[in-house]
Design a protein around this nucleic acid. Sequence first.
DNA 1: AATGAATGAGGCTTCATTCAT
DNA 2: TATGAATGAAGCCTCATTCAT
Lengths: 193, 193, 193, 193
Amino acid sequence: MKRDKPKYKQIVDAAVIVIAENGYHQAQVSKIAKEAGVADGTIYLYFKNKEEILISVFREKMGDFVEIVKNAIKKEITATEKLYEMIDSHFRWLHGDRHLAIVTQLELRQSNKDLRYRINEVLKEYLVLLDSILKEGIEKGEFDEKIDIRLARQMVFGTIDETITSWVMNDQKYDLLKLAPEVHRLILNGMKS
Amino acid sequence: MKRDKPKYKQIVDAAVIVIAENGYHQAQVSKIAKEAGVADGTIYLYFKNKEEILISVFREKMGDFVEIVKNAIKKEITATEKLYEMIDSHFRWLHGDRHLAIVTQLELRQSNKDLRYRINEVLKEYLVLLDSILKEGIEKGEFDEKIDIRLARQMVFGTIDETITSWVMNDQKYDLLKLAPEVHRLILNGMKS
Amino acid sequence: MKRDKPKYKQIVDAAVIVIAENGYHQAQVSKIAKEAGVADGTIYLYFKNKEEILISVFREKMGDFVEIVKNAIKKEITATEKLYEMIDSHFRWLHGDRHLAIVTQLELRQSNKDLRYRINEVLKEYLVLLDSILKEGIEKGEFDEKIDIRLARQMVFGTIDETITSWVMNDQKYDLLKLAPEVHRLILNGMKS
Amino acid sequence: MKRDKPKYKQIVDAAVIVIAENGYHQAQVSKIAKEAGVADGTIYLYFKNKEEILISVFREKMGDFVEIVKNAIKKEITATEKLYEMIDSHFRWLHGDRHLAIVTQLELRQSNKDLRYRINEVLKEYLVLLDSILKEGIEKGEFDEKIDIRLARQMVFGTIDETITSWVMNDQKYDLLKLAPEVHRLILNGMKS
DNA sequence: AATGAATGAGGCTTCATTCAT
DNA sequence: TATGAATGAAGCCTCATTCAT
């Protein structure tokens, strides 16, 4: 509701900051309202309840991201290159917003089953994109035709996710972007024909 | 404290069941006490607070598991074989205790930052074991000497973890054990020299 | 204030409908505004606060009703006949507006002490009318001269009120109007000389 | 639950006092707890929620009262005498507990539809008792055989209720007990054969 | 060692009212 | 006059922990 109003975005952005700085369980609605510079009640003109704020955080940000990835891989020709762009833009995305990185990798995972289920719905779009790259690679003969798409997807996503989580848990001390080529190489080798 | 008393184990086992069946946020101390067949207050004779119960769940169970893996790989000669044994016994471990699988893959991740930090401490022993296999593989020339150990570890752990989580999220419908060879192959290819 | 403007009546009528359909506690100002086809803020150009709307509902409607009763009994000669007309027109009034019946018998009674006190002020006009009939009946020898006017009034009003409330609580299933003669007879007997 | 524990009664009694002194809408759980001399949370060991406290107030008190009436009319022989005892003990009951009188006549009526529905369930026992007296009176020829039991019940209850409410609204200034004979006479005349 | 009744802090949400336009 | 977006106070309930027995 009213997702195009400026305050909607204001509140979502405030939620990212508050969750990142205080943790999921300490992100009270009143803190988010204060950070957004609105009254507590105003939150409920834009979101049905607290859970909806959190869903929106993920949906808005992940939505932006899927667009970025789609654009990034559009320019590429081979599945191998597309895979590289996906890894690199995923890294670049969270590297560019340290608060968001904390939220997606650590805090949002503390949500309850229902919320995580709904987050997975949003994630699906990303995984579908990944699947299409994998299928293309197999068809073109770039990847081994014997690989199980589901397992390959889990390897790719699991590796990327684990790499980013480690980076966040180490306080984003080292340069995540530099890891992209090696992660790409590890993943690719696993699927080479 | 008093970890050798029978009630200690009774409470830890009760916690696994209660968390698996009710979810992390619905696992009240009183429920755990009831499942363990003791009074609420008794819990606090064995655990300083609720967080300690959850830590213990992970420490006790993961401790058992690390032992299992250590024994499993002892018999093997090559790093490649050891890696296979690690994957297979990891799958076998959680395949054999559906409650524990839910708890490690879904519920315990909803805990707060502090708790997850301490869980990672316990995980370290597992990761150290993994690192030693990777190093051995490189030294023996089984794996590519150019791979970054940290990244390789993240790929291996990320892939295994993501595979198990997917299996749990799909209600453990399909046979996890059958996936071990293919997961092994995917991972191995990524590191082959 | 501004009771003669068309929007005033519009809002009062909307309040009756909203309260009847949603219940007293679910009759938010915004719902009344919507039903009346005006903006929330407009309500406050015509009413000081929400309580004033509710008072007005009763005052306007009860005002109409007292006029109706006055006219109805004007034609009658004996106090006995006037009493019958009062009962019959009371029944007829609420029988003709099912929303209003719900509001006066059930919903408005959920208001707080202050509001109920002010409603009683409005009711007084009705009770004064009733008292005058009772006095007239005593003076004319139709009713027992020994009856306590206050108690008699309470019996008459209590009986009528309880009868209507029962009818509303039974979802207005049976014909209220048919009960008038018997209610009249019961009441009258109580006061006969 | 645990209705026989002393704290259950303690809380119910505290609720009567708090509601009478502050009004239904100002009777916060915390006030009731304070008046009862227990912690807020303790309330919830004895009552599922706030509504259950209010139901219990009525059920416990009305339950006591129905017993009193049953005992009072047991000694009487005629329906006429029984009716007098019912009126007199009803008056005597609320005359003896000014807080309870305010609660039953004014405050509890502000509750929402659900609560009032459940209160009516409790009231039913009283009305059944009243019906049995009326039937007995008709069978014995004390009351007119042509009267409609339902209407007669509404007259009796309506008159008693209205009389007590008036007394409470007038701050219990006059002596309610003295009104019993006249109320009895008014009611009785209405039903005499 | 064991019990379990009692404690009390803490947060999401609603909605009457305001006020800039 | 009319609007409607924004405000912010206020309360029910849960549950980890304690402590008298």
